[in-house]
């Protein structure tokens, strides 16, 4: 398998690299089109979604990534990455763009400001055993899901925080900062299946 790509324009892309290292999966930072052509799937990290989208637009990565995902290229986004994979963004800035691929509506900063950031333990479909350790940092929420989208996890009050639409996986939270490796493992098997 080719290495997994991690979009490295801004955000906590190194933490995703460390998480993949921990499960013995090779990764490569993606900043250019040629980087994108040499990876088997793409992780879109936490960060500031408005900044990542602008940089992707300025360096001609936005359309190619959008097109690849539409054609079955596996993608996995955490927090800002979820926003960037959503087909619809609520409370974005004017003209905010996304790669799309998840038939969902995602609201930015859905919990409020940093004082409303929190840690939680979650049940997650397909991950038995210990609950998933999650950090929600100025996190988004999935407010609406299309009929082909599977909900993988929700908060106790029912708000949706993890979704999968075939080859595209999106989380409101950051497994990459809590030492949680099982969701990355799940993405690796998605990539293997699609190759």
């Amino acid at each position: 398998m080719l290495p997994l790509g991690i979009l490295a324009l801004q955000g906590d892309f190194r933490e995703h690299g460390y998480t993949l290292d921990a499960i013995g999966v090779e990764s490569r930072q993606v900043r250019t089109l040629s980087d994108l052509e040499s990876v088997a799937g793409l992780i879109i990290p936490g960060g500031e979604s408005t900044v990542i989208a602008k940089l992707a637009r300025a360096y001609d990565l936005l359309e190619p990534i959008r097109e690849k995902i539409a054609n079955g290229f596996p993608a996995f986004g955490t927090c800002a990455g979820l926003i960037l994979l959503a087909d619809e963004i609520l409370d974005g800035i004017e003209g905010q763009e996304s790669f799309g691929g998840l038939d969902v509506s995602v609201r930015r900063n859905a919990f409020g400001n940093q004082l409303d950031s929190f840690e939680a333990e979650l049940d997650f479909v397909g991950i038995p055993g210990e609950p998933v350790k999650a950090a929600f940092i100025r996190a988004p929420i999935v407010e609406w899901v299309g009929s082909d989208v599977e909900v993988l996890s929700a908060l106790p009050d029912g708000r949706i925080v993890a979704v999968q639409n075939d080859h595209v996986l999106g989380l409101s939270f950051h497994p990459e900062v809590t030492g949680e490796t099982r969701i990355h493992q799940h993405f690796v098997s998605m990539v293997k299946r699609s190759n």
Binding site: L9, G11, D12, G46, G47, V51, H174, V177
Partner: peptide
Amino acid sequence: RGLAEMMKGG
């Protein structure tokens, strides 16, 4: 500390 992690590279 996590919010600062998300600002990295910015």
